[in-house]
Amino acid sequence: MASGVEELLDMLFEMIDEAKNAPLSSDKCVIERDRALDLIDDVRSQFPIELSEARKMMANRAELVASAKREADAIRKAAEDRARQLVAEDTITLQARQRANEMMQQAEERSRDLKRSANEYCEDALRRTEEAVAEAYDEIKKSRARFRAAAGVSAAPSAGTGSRPMYDAAADED
């Protein structure tokens, strides 16, 4: 069994491309309907996997943000502990406050940098996933249109034929 959406679409394309011409026609061909529909069903079943990957990326983003917050909290706590020690010593109280403020600023800046980096990474990963899913969906619609055109099938299923109902991607867009 094929593993990815692209591989399944390649198999569908190859099936249509290698199909024998219909008698007395150069632009129509004969393909195995069940096999083509099975490939399209396999493509549909792969979409939840692609969406699952996007969810994993979102979870990774949340984990990165949480990790950055934990690191910032640890740095802040260390800065506060250090500041308390310095405040206890009357002679260097001013220096302790200044150093604690610097450490707090550094921790906050580091936290912002980590959060921004995590957001940029997740945004890029989600954008690429969205593009891949959209591209695969467009390819499916094109393949179905070519299949229908090649098979001479109308968009609406004929009543009483006992055949499998056809999926109408154009209706989904409305």
Rank of each mutant, 00 (worst) to 15 (best):
Q95N: 09
L8R: 05
M11L: 13
A150M: 01
L51F: 12
A79P: 00
R76E: 08
R116V: 15
P23V: 14
L12Q: 08
A19W: 05
S158N: 07
E89W: 00
A159S: 09
R55V: 08
I140H: 04
S3L: 09
I31M: 02
R112G: 14
L114A: 13
D42L: 06
R61M: 00
A156R: 01
R76M: 09
D174P: 01
L24I: 03
D124L: 12
A155M: 13
E131A: 08
E71V: 01
N21A: 10
D42P: 09
E139C: 11
R127H: 15
R127W: 09
E50F: 07
D73Q: 07
L51T: 06
V43C: 11
K141H: 05
A62L: 07
L51S: 06
G160K: 02
S143L: 13
D73C: 02
D27R: 15
K115T: 15
K69P: 00
I16Y: 10
Q46A: 12
A151M: 15
D138F: 15
D168V: 08
E120I: 12
K56N: 14
Q85N: 11
Q106V: 09
Q98D: 13
A78S: 01
A59H: 14
K142D: 12
T161E: 07
A22V: 05
R97L: 09
D34P: 00
D174I: 12
D113N: 15
N119Y: 14
R70T: 11
E173V: 13
D138C: 11
R44L: 05
L39H: 00
R146D: 05
R61Y: 11
Q106D: 14
N119K: 14
D41W: 10
Y121G: 04
G162E: 02
R112F: 09
E135N: 14
A96I: 08
A149K: 09
A74R: 04
I16W: 01
D138P: 00
A54V: 01
E80A: 02
V133L: 15
T161W: 03
A156W: 02
D34W: 06
L86D: 06
A79V: 06
S45N: 12
K56F: 09
S26D: 09
M104T: 10
R97V: 04
T93W: 01
R146S: 03
R44A: 05
P48T: 03
R44H: 01
E102F: 06
Q95F: 11
R33V: 15
E53M: 08
R110I: 04
D73K: 05
L64Q: 13
S3W: 07
L9C: 12
R44W: 01
R61L: 03
E123F: 14
M1H: 04
S67I: 08
S67M: 07
Q46E: 07
A149V: 00
S117T: 06
D172Y: 08
R99D: 08
I31K: 00
E123S: 15
E80R: 10
A74K: 07
A156H: 03
T161P: 05
E89A: 00
E123M: 14
D90F: 08
G4I: 04
S26K: 10
A155K: 12
E53V: 14
L64Y: 04
P48G: 06
F147N: 05
I16G: 07
K20Q: 06
M57H: 10
S163Q: 09
K77H: 10
V87G: 00
D42F: 14
A2Y: 11
S52K: 12
S117A: 15
D124H: 07
L37Y: 08
K141F: 05
